[in-house]
């Protein structure tokens, strides 16, 4: 009888441990997934802010008083008049990444019908967006993403 109880206790302990182990694996998966989503959102937010800042700076050289408002519109605030003006002057931007040691050279080209300007900065691997990292891991030396205005369905 004692032997049977001991075997039963062992079986219960084994089952409980197995269940706990699987639960821990599930929790780890959910945790990693939320970390991934957060990392992606942080990178996108930082890139949107940088792009909006540089583009607003470029197109507002003669309309300085509107600079903050233009930046807000580029980040998604609604303003039909400014949206029409930005469309009219052909304001846009694109991001390019060139593979470098331990990261990439991130270049932002902002442009309008009057010309363009390019700013660049070195970024470590972890700060790159997933599209750029995936392109590098596929063997590409460069990656690029065109910018689309928020009022035309862009990310910001």
């Amino acid at each position: 009888m004692r032997g049977l109880l001991w075997a039963l206790a062992q079986e219960c302990a084994r089952t409980t441990l197995t269940l706990l182990a699987w639960c821990a694996m599930g929790v780890a998966y959910v945790w990693l997934d939320s970390l991934g989503e957060r990392a992606k959102a942080d990178t996108e937010r930082a890139l949107d802010a940088w792009g909006a800042h540089e583009l607003a700076d470029f197109v507002c050289t003669r309309r300085v008083s509107n600079r903050a408002r233009v930046e807000a519109v580029l980040l998604g605030a609604r303003d039909a008049e400014l949206e029409a003006w930005l469309d009219e002057i052909g304001a846009g931007a694109d991001l390019t990444w060139e593979r470098r040691d331990h990261g990439a050279l991130e270049s932002l080209r902002v442009f309008s019908r009057d010309g363009h300007r390019t700013v660049a900065r070195e970024r470590p691997w972890d700060e790159l967006p997933s599209e750029a990292r995936a392109a590098f891991l596929r063997g590409d030396a460069t990656a690029s993403v065109p910018w689309q205005a928020p009022w035309r369905g862009g990310a910001a």
Binding site: L32, L35, R38, A39, D42, D126, S130, R133, L137
Partner: peptide, 29 residues
């Protein structure tokens, strides 16, 4: 690409998945 072209896309896809879903989020955390 040169030696196992049939497997290369799958291995790359797995590597990209690990980079995107595990390593970079953990390092940033």
């Amino acid at each position: 690409e040169a030696h196992v072209p049939s497997l290369a896309p799958h291995i790359k896809k797995a590597f990209i998945f690990i980079d995107d879903k595990v390593m970079v989020p953990v390092r940033r955390a």
